[in-house]
């Protein structure tokens, strides 16, 4: 419980960049922190940067899915960005498809995707 993943606020979006090895406990606390932060800031989108992660196991995969589900309920879009090829292959092989989660190549693209996703309904 000593370390936590920092959550940064960028406009109406939140960015959580995972730079350390994510163990189960930390993953669960990230989920809690993120849902709290969404309500607190009224965030419209969440970016989770996994580009430094070399291992994503099925549990972390499920936590990511949960975060997406929670934020959807709280009216925010979740984008997982920067997944490495090896990680993607492993997840697919394990059958963890992360369905319902949006993905992008990097934070930049992820931000663009979020803007697009959050602006469109307002315009329409």
């Amino acid at each position: 419980m000593n370390s936590r993943i920092p959550i940064l606020k960028i406009g109406s979006f939140l960015l959580a960049s995972i730079q350390v090895e994510l163990d189960d406990e930390l993953a669960v606390s990230l989920q809690e922190d993120l849902t709290q932060a969404i309500t607190k800031h009224g965030a419209k989108g969440v970016l989770i940067d996994v580009s430094s992660m070399e291992i994503i196991d099925s549990f972390i995969g499920r936590v990511l899915g949960n975060v997406a589900a929670c934020s959807r309920i709280l009216d925010a879009v979740t984008v997982v960005v920067g997944m490495r090829p090896a990680v993607a292959i492993t997840l697919v092989e394990m059958g963890v498809g992360l369905h319902g989660i949006r993905t992008a190549l990097n934070v930049d693209r992820g931000l663009a995707l979020l803007r697009e996703a959050t602006e469109r309904p307002a315009a329409g």
Binding site: R84, V92, G97, L98, T103, L105
Partner: peptide
């Protein structure tokens, strides 16, 4: 599927 996970 893997490409999608990476955002492509």
């Amino acid at each position: 599927e893997a490409a999608r996970l990476m955002g492509a």
